[in-house]
């Protein structure tokens, strides 16, 4: 029951946030709407015991990425009036057509496909399951997959050194 209530609350919040992102005139409102969506989805992850994914969602997306968005918006200037002329002609019609096709596809699969939807909120959650917790993800990551983990460290090194190598050149001349 708690899961169902939480799901409905968070789903409504997530959708509201998503609609805000698209409809808000002020880009700051759009960014905050995105924040609401990301947080609501993170709560749904927690309900499903995917603790690590929820934490990553909040830290990486809601924290880092969104801060970056806000930074860019502020840098460009919030007050600057936006040109609302559409550069791609008839893109609304195109997007609408794709959306209708997608919805029609989902409806067709639901009606004609011979399988049952099992809403996650209705199923009983096994509170003893630990497959999504931080410990459950961390253990294989630092034992069986340690080499892959270390390989990503090389990627970060290249990222840092590469940024310096590519961005440092103007000072030369």
């Amino acid at each position: 029951m708690v899961e169902a209530v939480l799901f409905v609350l968070m789903a409504v919040a997530a959708l509201t946030g998503a609609v805000t992102v698209v409809l808000a005139r002020n880009p700051i409102y759009s960014a905050i709407g995105l924040l609401g969506t990301l947080f609501s989805v993170a709560v749904i992850y927690v309900v499903h015991l995917a603790h690590l994914v929820a934490a990553v969602q909040v830290i990486v997306y809601a924290g880092a990425v969104l801060t970056l968005f806000l930074f860019v918006i502020m840098l460009i200037g919030v007050d600057k009036s936006e040109r609302r002329i559409e550069t791609l002609p008839s893109q609304r019609i195109g997007v609408g057509a794709i959306a209708i096709l997608l919805i029609a596809g989902v409806v067709a699969i639901t009606v004609f496909g011979n399988f049952e939807w099992v809403p996650a909120a209705a199923s009983v959650i096994d509170l003893d399951a630990t497959n999504g917790t931080v410990a459950a993800v961390a253990e294989p990551m630092f034992t069986d997959w340690v080499l892959a983990f270390e390989a990503t460290a090389l990627l970060l090194t290249i990222g840092a050194a590469g940024a310096v190598a590519l961005a440092h050149y103007r000072r030369r001349n």
Binding site: A151, L154, L155, A161, G162
Partner: peptide, 12 residues
Amino acid sequence: LGLEVGSIALYV
């Protein structure tokens, strides 16, 4: 991952 480490280094 090895492919990416090598390739990203080459892009730089």
